[in-house]
C-alpha cells in the first residue's frame, strides 16, 4: 500500500463518493509529508489519472448497497487493476517460502519413516566380561543367598540377602533366625536400596 499512501484518492474507508467533490487535475503528492522521487507505481498512477467520466458512468446504473474501496477500483481502469494485482504477489514474496506446509509435511513424514528404519540396523557387538578369580561357591547365572543381620531400631533382624554375581537384589527374613522367623517389615524390604548407595 505504500505506493498509494500519498495518492489523494486512495482512501481506505467505505466511501459513497459525492460527485461534486471530485478533482479533475492530476493529483500531486503532499509536499509536507513526502518528497521522495516517484516510484514505478506512482509514475503509472500519474500517467493514467482517474477518468471521472468513466466513474460517473459506472455509478449511474448502480443502486442499493454496493461498496468499493477507491474510485480507481470503481472506474475499473485496466492500468489500476494491473497495479493492484502486482501489489499482492510482491507483498507475498516477503514471506520466506523455503519451507512451506507441504514441504514441512514431507520432511516430517520422511523423518518419522526413517526414525523407524533406524531400529532395523544390525545389532552391535556385545562383550562377555568374566571373572578373573571367580568367588568360591558361585555358580554363574545362579543367585547366592547370604544369611546376615540388619541393625534396625536398636534390634538385629536376621535376613537372607539374594545376590547375583555380587549385586544384591532382594532381602527376605531368615526363617532360621529367632528375631525374624522368615518375616520382614517394609524397612527391611527397602533396605536393599541402601546396599547400592555409595
Amino acid at each position: 500500500m505504500d505506493g498509494m499512501s500519498d495518492h489523494k484518492h486512495s482512501s481506505s474507508g467505505l466511501l459513497k463518493p459525492e460527485p461534486s467533490g471530485f478533482v479533475t487535475e492530476t493529483p500531486k503528492p503532499d509536499p509536507d509529508v513526502d518528497n521522495h522521487p516517484p516510484n514505478a507505481e506512482e509514475r503509472e498512477l500519474r500517467e493514467y489519472p482517474l477518468d471521472l467520466a468513466v466513474v460517473r458512468t459506472k455509478l449511474a446504473d448502480k443502486q442499493g448497497k454496493q461498496y468499493w474501496r477507491t474510485l480507481e477500483e470503481l472506474s475499473d481502469d485496466p492500468h489500476f487493476s494491473d497495479l493492484l494485482h502486482r501489489e499482492f504477489p510482491r507483498a507475498a514474496s516477503e514471506w520466506d517460502e523455503s519451507v512451506d506446509r507441504r514441504d514441512f509435511l514431507k520432511l516430517m513424514g520422511a523423518s518419522l519413516a526413517l526414525a523407524g528404519m533406524a531400529g532395523c540396523g544390525k545389532p552391535s557387538e556385545q562383550y562377555i566380561v568374566p571373572y578373573v578369580k571367580q568367588p568360591e561357591g558361585l555358580v554363574l547365572g545362579k543367585p547366592q543367598h547370604y544369611a546376615t543381620v540388619m541393625a534396625f531400631g536398636g534390634d538385629a533382624l536376621g535376613v537372607l540377602v539374594e545376590s547375583h554375581e555380587g549385586r544384591p537384589t532382594k532381602i527376605e527374613g531368615n526363617p532360621e533366625h529367632p528375631s525374624s522367623l522368615g518375616a520382614t517389615d517394609v524397612f527391611a524390604q527397602a533396605a536393599v536400596l541402601d546396599l547400592w548407595v555409595n
Binding site: P130, Y131, V132, K133, Q134, V139, L140, G141, K142
Partner: peptide
C-alpha cells in the same frame, strides 16, 4: 564351561 549342568548359562571361564 562349568555351570552348564546347573545354570541357565554355560559360563565363560575365569582367567584363573
Amino acid at each position: 564351561h562349568t555351570s552348564v549342568e546347573t545354570s541357565a548359562t554355560a559360563g565363560i571361564p575365569q582367567t584363573k
